[in-house]
Nucleic acid binder design. Structure first.
Lengths: 198, 198
DNA sequence: CAGAACTAGACGATCAGTCAACTATTTTAC
DNA sequence: GTAAAATAGTTGACTGATCGTCTAGTTCTG
């Protein structure tokens, strides 16, 4: 069946990194190929377009990240603790990225979303899908907290959306100011929004 | 002193619109020129680069928007009401843009910030400057509310940052889902964060 | 050796940016 | 008052780099 190759995976890894450290628009196919050590011809053998590689890459990254989230949001963990741990995980992740790239990179889904959602339909749909899944983690944790009495609300979904919007906004600020310390207030902010005691 | 021209203003207007409806990366100099009815040679007569036009445009837009904000955040208005009115103003603005462009466009400062902050230093500095000014409106309103007793907090600045991050996150979601109704919960969300009674 | 997996490099289009020639308007000089 | 000079704006052809894409051909594997 012909030869085998790791080129596809290398392209995906390169794409994720370049989008995260830069932007979709600032990332050229040549650049992706160079970083992946793949010739341009091979690129279009594996992917039909730059958009398709982006969709595949984002999907791939999300699948990986979900494994982590499934552990963080395990029903075994107290519900409020799940959300706080998620935020701590964000902070840790950004710290690792900072060490690696010398920059706070924020959330690639949102940076990409802000950039392409009016321009690239296919990419936007994928990002919507992922964010729609992400918020369910918050939602179910809040519902559990509600049942348990640690959070008082009449609309768990609405509260989840607030927490979600807040976390994105904060990650974006950390990226814009290249400042990890902006993420330190994640926890206190979440507690204020969720109305839990310190 | 030679002839006069409105070309510069037309370029600024075109740039703002194109960035808002698309992105910085998806906006080409040719496109800007075409929309402004200006030849490329004239473009570089007025601006030394695409980045410089972006900086000038963003600055111009912010100067305009500030006039509105100064009214919304007038000390004459009850402090909590200022913030809620600001959010109502966001919602109204997005509604107008939707009628005009058929899309929810969100906040151009943040969309741009997410896109270029790791790539274009000059642009990033300008965006930082503007956001740094914006948050002062929230901060001073919250401080006034605190003095007046309608908001209880020990750190007005921190609370302002939460409100700010939340509003940005929500605007981004409205853009990504092209859904105005996402902005309906602005008010209730703000009340939850600020801890004011309904 | 059949056929799938992969590569090389050329494609036309478009990118940001340059430039010298040209036109229109105001200022200055007399 | 008017002509010359200085200023400001306009034009379109041009650069070299890079864009995303594609086709024809090579290399490897079953």
């Amino acid at each position: 069946m012909g030869r085998t190759s790791t080129a596809k995976d290398r392209l995906i890894a390169a794409m994720i990194e370049l989008i995260w450290t830069g932007s979709y628009g600032s990332t050229s196919v040549d650049q992706i190929c160079e970083r992946a050590g793949v010739k341009k011809g091979s690129f279009y053998h594996f992917f039909e377009s730059k958009t398709e590689l982006a969709v595949t890459s984002i999907d791939h990254g999300w699948t990986e990240h979900r494994k982590e989230l499934d552990q963080i949001f395990s029903p075994v963990v107290p519900p409020v603790e799940r959300i706080l741990n998620c935020f701590r995980n964000f902070r840790q992740e950004q710290e690792d990225l900072f060490k690696k790239h010398g920059r706070v990179l924020g959330c690639p889904i949102h940076s990409l979303g802000a950039e392409v959602s009016t321009v690239d339909e296919r990419l936007r749909d994928k990002l919507q899908e992922i964010l729609g899944q992400f918020i369910r983690y918050y939602e179910s944790a809040i519902r559990d907290a509600q049942a348990q009495g640690s959070i008082v609300t009449h609309d768990a979904m609405a509260l989840a959306r607030i927490v979600f919007a807040y976390s994105e906004g904060l990650l974006l600020h950390a990226r814009m100011w290249n400042d990890l310390s902006r993420l330190d207030e994640f926890e206190s902010g979440a507690k204020i929004i969720l109305g839990v005691k310190t």
